[in-house]
Design a protein around this nucleic acid. Structure first.
Lengths: 339, 339
DNA sequence: CTGAAAGCGCTTACAG
DNA sequence: CTGAAAGCGCTTACAG
């Protein structure tokens, strides 16, 4: 193991100064074509590549973005990670991944660790940050984007879909389908997505003069959603429709209804979800849901991050993207609602 | 944005030298309890945390592991990423993620980028590396572990399941189930997992005096697997059983059989897969498969990596973990095979 | 355009 | 145990 080639070695071989080597490898720096050629030649022969960490030290830019993520078993997040990583890669950044701890209090530690790596920005997916933490990030000059989670406070940006509107659309759809006993399976109660989707859903139901007749908590988890479905549906007077707060839970609900309780979906019960993960379109589920575009959310996230990093723009931005209803066979489809 | 607190500032406030501060924050370094107390106090008051990048420069250890990954839409990989990240986090390392480009030739560039970040090790999941690249990594003293892919060459480690044995088990299972027209849907032909699983599967089939009667290529992709299923089954003399080279493809195959071609699974056709991703156990699919334990594979990967990094152990290791057959309802179950 | 010098924030021999 | 000094591999004013 011979250690890495250094800029100084390249400089010596090319017969120029270390500064010259640096300039040739720094886009936009001034170097004559003649010098550049000599340097590039020597670098090639020696197999030289600049040490990004050293560059980061002096420039103060690590070109790393910290990503804090939970719920990787929910298909939405792998998609987000893939797209985020690709979009960032295209801009010369890379993602340093941190799994969010189960205990909310431990999240602060992890954010500190992320900061220790001198990342240029942070994306926090589906986690809440204490205001103390967002303050620390602000002091450190590290922009933070909350992804798929909103939160009060004003020193960070947030990108979500319009969860209230999405919830309302689902309510209107179920009401139009003639349902009169509508249930709701909640996500994690502290999550803004859970609260907003439920708020919009209830608003839509109440607008039609109805009430939600049953409510259980599934905490965005497969097993807990299945339990919730059992409690809600293993009884004669069960609802005739249910909104599971995300697709990931809706799949568990559909499986319980069909394979444990012998109920037909959508014959006996209409099921709808939220996210439109790839699975939702698979025939086995064919789930009616609200599309939350990972593509668009990631694009907004990257745009905000890069703007804040490269233009020192300190203005936090809140984005709530509208998501269309995807009407599919897991629910009774009212006349004229087919998409 | 006030810039970060430095060790020197802490030293001044604590009335000690910069070296003393460094020692207090370096596990195992010698500092008196008295000094340590003063330093810790000053650090706390100032909100000091060591700059990991600066530490990395002088120590030569970045505590970052580069992960090159493709196929994030295959549920196996999010699970791997989550577990790998957690296991590494527990050892004080973190994962820098790079998405593998579609074009095989571009993979070399990406590995170079990974190396530029001075990672302490590399995990390449489901991608092949040119021997030139593994040589570069070796020269740079960066251990490489191929994950879920084997390859000839001798300067890197590899962790897989025993794909040959797994393929054979599936063949024996299908033969025992009385199937006489067995088909195979291949993954990406260049992948060692594809080759090994097919090899084992064929061996098992031939051991029973049979031959594979149909073969199509699904390239490990959902859409292409669906196409492959259509070609194979949209005809009267279709196979009575099929092995899709991974679960991700098997789901697509099952959906096509049931919802497009009106075939019953397992009534008309038995379907088996490989991986045992979470979805496989869901009632909608209930897929018979070979368990490839992300947990165990990740544990081996981390053990190898950490050993090579921390003990300068240069010995490459190849691990092929045995995976049990998970017998489930997507296939006709022979007497006594229920697990 | 180019080079010598300083410095990014640490750690690590080396003396004491 | 502790401090002064050197150095990790770069970039960036500063002169020329």
């Amino acid at each position: 193991m011979k250690s890495r080639v250094t800029a100084l070695e390249v400089a010596e071989r090319a017969g120029v100064s270390q500064s010259a080597v640096s300039r040739v490898f720094t886009p936009g720096a001034s170097a004559s074509e003649k010098t550049a050629a000599k340097v590039r030649r020597a670098a090639m022969e020696l197999g030289y590549r600049p040490n990004i960490l050293a560059r980061a030290m002096v420039s103060g830019k690590s070109r790393m973005i910290g990503l804090l993520v939970a719920y990787l078993n929910n298909q939405f997040y792998p998609e987000v990670l893939e797209k985020l990583s690709n979009a960032l890669q295209a801009k010369g950044y890379h993602v340093l991944v941190f799994m969010a701890p189960q205990i909310a209090g431990d999240i602060d530690h992890v954010i500190q660790e992320i900061l220790d790596y001198q990342v240029d920005g942070i994306v926090a997916a589906s986690v809440a940050l204490s205001s103390e933490l967002t303050n620390r990030c602000e002091e450190a000059g590290v922009p933070v984007v909350l992804f798929n989670r909103a939160q009060s406070g004003d020193n960070f940006s947030a990108v979500t879909s319009d969860n209230v509107s999405g919830g309302r659309k689902l309510a209107e759809f179920l009401v139009a389908g003639g349902h009169e006993k509508i249930g709701y399976i909640a996500g994690w109660e502290d999550a803004s997505t859970q609260r907003d989707r439920e708020f919009g859903f209830r608003a839509g139901i109440e607008m039609a003069g109805q009430q939600i007749v049953a409510r259980e908590v599934g905490n965005f988890a497969h097993l807990q959603a299945a339990e919730a479905a059992r409690r809600m549906f293993d009884r004669p007077d069960h609802p005739d429709a249910v909104f599971a707060c995300n697709d990931h839970m809706a799949f568990a609900v559909m499986d319980v209804l069909r394979f444990e309780l012998g109920l037909s979906v959508p014959g006996d019960v209409s099921v709808v979800g939220y996210d439109d993960v790839p699975n939702a379109a698979w025939p086995a589920y064919n789930l009616t849901t609200v599309r939350q575009s990972a593509n668009r959310m990631v694009a907004e996230t990257v745009a905000i991050l890069v703007d804040q990093i490269e233009n020192q723009n300190k203005e936090p931005r809140r984005i709530a993207l509208d998501g269309p209803l995807k009407v599919r066979g897991s629910a009774r489809i009212p006349e004229g609602w087919k998409t």
